[in-house]
Computed example of a mutant assay.
Amino acid sequence: MKNRSLSTMLACLCIALTPARASAQDEGGWHSLFNGRDLSGWTVKINKHPLGDNYANTFRVEDGVIKVSYDGYGKFDEQFGHLYSNLAYANYILRLEYRITGTAVADAPPWAKLNSGVMIHSQSPWTMGLNQAWPASMEFQFLSAGATAGRQTGNVCTPGTNLEMKGKLLTDHIVESTSKLFPLDEWVAVEVEVRGNEEVVHRVNGVEVLRYQHPQLDPREDSAKALLNAGAPLQLSFGHIALQAESQPVWFRNIRIRPLPATSGTGQQAPGAPR
């Protein structure tokens, strides 16, 4: 974050308010975010590497699936990565399926093993610092049986952020869902319904497991401080979507989004444009 000037970060915030271009629409208003062939429409940022450097081919496409792979790593060395949508979104339902598989890199932190996720309301990858491990965002956490990071999948994690639940501000890093853990190598279907700054709902295999309100930046955290100093609002009403790479091989498929009507105070229905 410190490598980006104030003017650059403000420019990125303005870019995120540009209306999105139209894309192919499926029955029911669903749009595919992944073409099944390559990473067009997505941008890689891996900790300790420049924006756009897909180090060791971490994110790859095989057989119509986005795969996070570590066969090119000698060691993990905290090289946490994310694959960002080039567009930012405000009001939508996101659906995807994930499959946690294989074995994490040996030197990864214990909590990162059998652990992945998808970030919503994420800061732009163009505002990320070279050595910034996670974007300020809300994470829909994916855990597999045997994970030490939690007792269920579908939790929300809050890097650089906070949230409210039933009118109370929560500053915990992890807020637990009511789901369970699923076995390694099992495909799990998840859905997140995002209503701007008003409400976010997590669903796992069609069942609601978590609901919270008013996602917001955490002024105590460095990445959030930099965004706030650059003019970002405290309350998060839109942002990028990012698939996570935390040392554990994981696969993603059937990534689709359906825009929802704009809610009060969120501006454009689906703001964002690639730089």
Rank of each mutant, 00 (worst) to 15 (best):
Thr148Leu: 15
Pro274Trp: 12
Ile93Lys: 14
Val68Glu: 03
Leu170Asn: 05
Gly41Asn: 03
Ser247Pro: 11
Asp172Ile: 03
Ala189Ser: 13
Arg203Glu: 01
Leu96Asp: 00
Leu143His: 05
Ala108Tyr: 00
Leu169Met: 08
Leu170His: 07
Ala149Asp: 02
Asn35Ile: 11
Met165Glu: 07
Gly64His: 06
Lys113His: 05
Tyr55Asn: 00
Ser116Lys: 03
Ala90Met: 07
Gly167Glu: 00
Thr43Trp: 11
Thr58Trp: 02
Pro125His: 10
Ile255Ala: 10
Ser122Asp: 00
Tyr70Arg: 06
Tyr84Val: 00
Leu51Val: 06
Asp26Tyr: 11
Pro125Arg: 08
Met1Arg: 03
Leu94Ala: 09
Ala24Phe: 13
Ala16Lys: 10
Gln132Ser: 08
His214Ser: 06
Val204Tyr: 04
His31Thr: 06
Pro261Met: 02
Asp185Phe: 11
Ala242Tyr: 01
Gly150Arg: 03
Leu51Tyr: 13
Ala20Ile: 10
Gln235Trp: 15
Gly52Cys: 13
Lys75Gln: 08
Glu139Tyr: 12
Ala147Trp: 06
Thr101His: 05
Leu143Cys: 05
Ala262Ser: 15
Phe140Pro: 06
Ser223Phe: 12
Pro159Asn: 11
Leu234Arg: 15
Ala226Lys: 04
Leu130Cys: 02
Val209Leu: 01
Ser5Leu: 14
Thr178Cys: 01
Asp71Ile: 12
Arg4Cys: 13
Gly196Phe: 13
Thr263Trp: 08
Gln269Ile: 12
Ser137Tyr: 05
Asp185Asn: 15
Asp107Tyr: 13
Lys2Ala: 15
Phe34Trp: 07
Arg37Ala: 09
Ala106Asn: 08
Ala22Phe: 15
